[in-house]
Nucleic acid binder design. Sequence first.
DNA 1: TCTGGTCAAGGTGGT
DNA 2: ACCACCTTGACCAGA
Length: 300
Amino acid sequence: MRIGYPCINRTIGCIPSKTFRLASYSDERLRATVAANLACLQKILQFNVEHGLLFLRITSNIVPFASHKICTFPWQEHFSDILRELGDYCRHHGFRISMHPDQFVLLNAPDAGVLERSIAELAYQTAVLDLMGLDRATKVQIHIGGVYGDKAASMDRFVENYTRLDPAIQARLVIENDERLYSVADCRAIHDRTGIPVILDTFHHALNNQGEPLADVLSVLTKTWNNNDGLPMVDYSSQQEGKRAGAHVEHIVPEDFCQFLDNSRLYDFDIMLEIKDKEKSATLALELAAGDPRIVTRVG
DNA sequence: TCTGGTCAAGGTGGT
DNA sequence: ACCACCTTGACCAGA
């Protein structure tokens, strides 16, 4: 069990998701931005290793506009050395990273253009991980997508479009339950038809479920991951008091997290903390989990 | 230097 | 019809 957080570190003073407006695109602007983003990513990786946080979600914005037509700069070749170095660093430290394309990636979109742009984005994110030389335990997580007025047909379309993907994308793709449309049971149904591993989002599950207790869900979902896929992944968060249902907390709620650790004790997985204060809560989570035999903070 | 309107992309649900 | 929300706010024109 590793503990991580998404995208941004608020302590070290750099941002790995610098971007710019499409209107100000130039190859030089892109090259400079990506160089800065990768330098920042390297600092975050080092910070995490030093703090025993061996898990990190990389921002989709590491290469801005990478899947947009406007981007003709050969960033893959230009940054292959540094990407490889970062990947080597991860491997050396037993560090796991993941990526999570945003809400525009809809593999079950009925619209051909939306589907095409979605696949281009998946290809970009997969390419980053491939260039880092990371194995197929390094995942790209998406939701099933929209319902489009017919959930069964939309699930069929997801399966159909998945089977046509490049195997390099298929090898990294995992699906995650969402808080409104596709529950854990729906993801499991997709898994049964495709073999795609399922990420449990505990917070989404609390908002959208068929009454299954956490331990039951973990029992089912951890089996959707095989050896090549690495340890199962779990996204953890809880409700911010006083905000709309589904709003992530600002800071980890220790009692809730400890209860989660206890309820899940029979299963091992990596935890992504979707909590707004990022590394601060992740560090506390590590302290709260001290003594839990699953926890790994250092490799080699 | 600071701030407010706006930013590639889609779908949903609340108003 | 319009708007906020989404894994993450950041960019930039104008004051």
